[in-house]
Design a protein around this nucleic acid. Sequence first.
DNA 1: CTGTGATCATGA
DNA 2: TCATGATCACAG
Length: 215
Amino acid sequence: MFDSPLSEKELTWRAAALSGRTLGELARVLDVAVPEDLKRAKGWGGNLVELALGASAGNKPIPDFFALGVELKTIPCAAGRPRESTFVCGLPADGGEASWEESRVRHKLARVLWIPIDAHGPVALRRIGAPTLWSPNAEEEATLRSDWEELTGLVRLGELAGIDARRGRALQLRPKAPDRRATTWALDEQGDWMRTMPLGFYLRARFTATLLAHS
DNA sequence: CTGTGATCATGA
DNA sequence: TCATGATCACAG
């Protein structure tokens, strides 16, 4: 629909131009139908904004704006604060990369364009907010790294059973699957492969709230 | 089945 | 009200 932005400056300019508009207005321009609610279209808003900004990654495991190394995340907000956690990426079956530096979490979060969208009301009337282009500051990176090391450390020890969404100050591990019957492979405490529920890394709403506030 | 995009629904 | 655990759609 639209060309990909050629620079961060162009990307932020285009994102800023969406600020204040409703999803319904944007959908009409893009000739996209608006769903009654998001129960069966949970990624609709995110996909709409991707289309408007010329994101090109599709479902490939690369940044939305590959040439710029920027990831796009829409985030549902009410009263100026995020109402939901933010999915980052799946947990690799073997527990993950050897180090934080190589991790998918760190690469995903290296540069993110956050676009707040109203969390409540009729979908077509929900307003898009002002974008913020973010990279973790030293404190945020330290928190993310510490959470990541704790969680992946447990996974590598085969202590998947000891993990739930309560662990982690900023980053948490939660189910990420079509339903509760879904399974994937993981190592148990004896080092044998076993079937478990697929998990994904998520950013807590508390964490995204602070980064949106000071960026 | 794994990746992308996320929000829903329920109990505390 | 809020976080956790569950769930939805679609591409490849």
